[in-house]
């Protein structure tokens, strides 16, 4: 089993944009295999350590397994019939695939944002308050406070503060995506999983999301799947390259984009045939 660990010291010296003192490993993946129905194997013996309060980007061609891997971190694959997983994922030392794990609680602490913004057909306010209400928090004063804090964290407050009662569906795509991020942030997760969060957005909205990711990493461990390699280069501290279900290389983003160790990584990021 090939284990990929990141030299945090090296990362510290290169990651000028990160509050480096906070860096430590938060997620450990060991020998992870994932099969979809019909013995169709999507992940092969993936092992890596993911540092805390950093942005880790997963890059690779379509079908390389990066989204499958991302969905393992909040057990979204449990919802797929016939999906089978072996190996281990621990978050802060806790095995998330143990039988007694409360999956709903796991998904609260590991929030997820998808490619297409998926606000509920409710008001802006209620979208953000939704997760809190489910947790039984109904006090208006508490809700108001958390909704404002979350919308501010998602860099959306100034744009919506005067129309919190309006339907979320009336927001632009970029605003909807930031609202979805605010909804995630409201329930105070530890980790955010972003699956192509900006691929359906225009360049300006994309930049706003990227800026938001940069801000959010001070508080959350962020994992992002993206097809846009320049986006991975811009927003992440660590980049993992996957190919045909295998993790080929993981390292500081600076190293991966300037001098990767593996030929396959080099070929992929320079746009050559692998």
């Amino acid at each position: 089993m090939q284990s990929h660990t990141i030299d945090i010291k090296t990362l510290r010296s290169s990651a000028s944009t990160t509050d480096v003192d906070k860096m430590s490993t938060t997620i450990v993946v060991e020998g992870l295999n994932l099969f979809y129905a019909g013995a169709n194997q999507a992940l092969f013996d993936v092992s890596l350590d993911i540092p805390e309060k950093c942005v880790t980007a997963f890059i690779g061609a379509s079908g390389c397994g990066k989204s499958s891997l991302l969905r393992c971190f909040n057990r979204m694959n449990d919802l797929i019939d016939g999906c089978d997983i072996s190996g281990k994922i621990t978050i802060n030392g806790d095995d998330i695939y143990k039988d007694d794990v409360d999956v709903a609680e796991l998904r609260r602490s590991v929030g997820m944002v998808f490619q297409k913004p998926n606000p509920f057909p409710k008001s802006i306010y209620e979208n953000v308050a939704y997760g809190l209400r489910i947790q039984g928090i109904n006090k208006e004063r508490v809700l108001d406070e958390i909704v404002e804090k979350s919308l501010r964290a998602a860099a959306l407050w100034d744009e919506v503060k005067d129309r919190l009662g309006d339907s979320a569906l009336g927001l632009s795509g970029g605003q909807q995506q930031r609202l979805v991020i605010a909804r995630c942030v409201a329930v105070e997760p530890k980790i955010l999983l972003l699956d192509e969060p900006a691929s359906a957005l225009d360049p300006i909205s994309t930049l706003k999301i990227e800026e938001l990711i940069y801000e959010l990493k001070n508080h959350y461990t962020i994992l992002i799947v993206t097809h846009n390699m320049q986006q991975a280069a811009r927003v992440s501290d660590v980049t993992a390259f996957m190919h045909l279900g295998k993790l080929v290389e993981v390292g500081s983003t600076e190293t991966i984009f300037t001098n990767p160790n593996e030929k396959q990584t080099e070929d992929y990021i320079t746009g050559r045939y692998g």
């Binding site: 390699m229 984009f257 300037t258 080099e266 990021i269 320079t270």
Partner: peptide, 9 residues
């Protein structure tokens, strides 16, 4: 072109 790795070098 935003060259990377060996192309950038």
């Amino acid at each position: 072109r935003q060259p990377a790795a060996s192309d950038l070098r």
